[in-house]
């Protein structure tokens, strides 16, 4: 069984934001009205973080796509009282909406702040597109949601590979963000397969994980030629 993981090459990434929009439409993530968004209730399963160092004009900046790290040892799963978020098949951190009671413990526990509470119900034409992706359910108000590595695509891919009478493998599906990346900065695949592109990149000297010292073992790796300690 593959263990899905992602490598994002920050040297290749141009911060174009395409992944962010692709994620929103693929996953029917609602557009949070501006008043609510100002309260910090905006929802982007994938955001582009911006970090600046130095003083003008000796200034450097990095843009970094930020999404659920699918931690192998995920702090969020340990605090969920109802088993709505847990480490599921393929090493994915699941978020099962009908189980979620909206206590938001997991949001507090997540060191990466990539889980979002749904404060406002989606409304078609205002918060939600009129053309929803039928493969992804629209979350109701009152639950926590997050990036799923486009798990619904895996659900479909599993059906396809079974019809082809073979086992699912690293290249059988990619999330929407990876699929659309013009700079091919994102690589997705099986971390368990040492020969897969994603494993080789994750093992490269440029690779690092966010907040490695916490021991959460994220399955999203970043590549950068810059010194990782800066």
């Amino acid at each position: 069984m593959p263990i899905w993981g992602m490598v994002i090459d920050l040297d290749r990434c141009t911060g174009c934001g395409g992944c962010m929009a692709a994620c929103k439409v693929e996953n029917n993530v609602q557009v949070v009205p501006p008043g609510e968004a100002l309260k910090g209730r905006g929802m982007h399963w994938l955001t582009i973080l911006s970090r600046t160092e130095g003083e003008y004009p000796d200034v450097e900046a990095v843009l970094q796509p930020d999404l659920c790290m699918m931690c192998d040892d995920a702090p969020c799963t340990k605090v969920c009282p109802v088993h709505a978020t847990y480490r599921g098949a393929y090493g994915l951190v699941a978020q099962i909406y009908p189980r979620c009671i909206g206590c938001r413990y997991c949001m507090a526990a997540c060191p990466y702040t990539v889980k979002f509470f749904n404060w406002t119900a989606g409304e078609e034409g205002v918060n939600l597109s009129s053309s929803l992706n039928p493969d992804v359910s629209v979350r109701p108000k009152g639950v926590v949601e997050k990036c799923t590595f486009c798990y619904h695509r895996l659900q479909k891919a599993k059906e396809r590979v079974r019809a082809e009478q073979r086992e699912i493998a690293g290249g059988d599906y990619v999330p929407a963000c990876v699929e659309m990346c013009p700079a091919k900065a994102m690589t997705f695949g099986d971390l368990d397969d040492g020969e897969s592109p994603v494993s080789r990149l994750a093992a490269s000297r440029r690779a690092s994980q966010l907040l490695e010292h916490l021991g959460t073992e994220p399955k999203v790796y970043y590549l950068s030629k810059r010194d990782r300690n800066v």
Binding site: G88, A89, Y90, A94, I96, D135, V136, Q155, K158
Partner: peptide, 12 residues
């Protein structure tokens, strides 16, 4: 083995 009981198998 195709019919697992992991929530992720059916929920989306």
């Amino acid at each position: 083995r195709y019919a697992g009981s992991d929530c992720l198998f059916c929920h989306h």
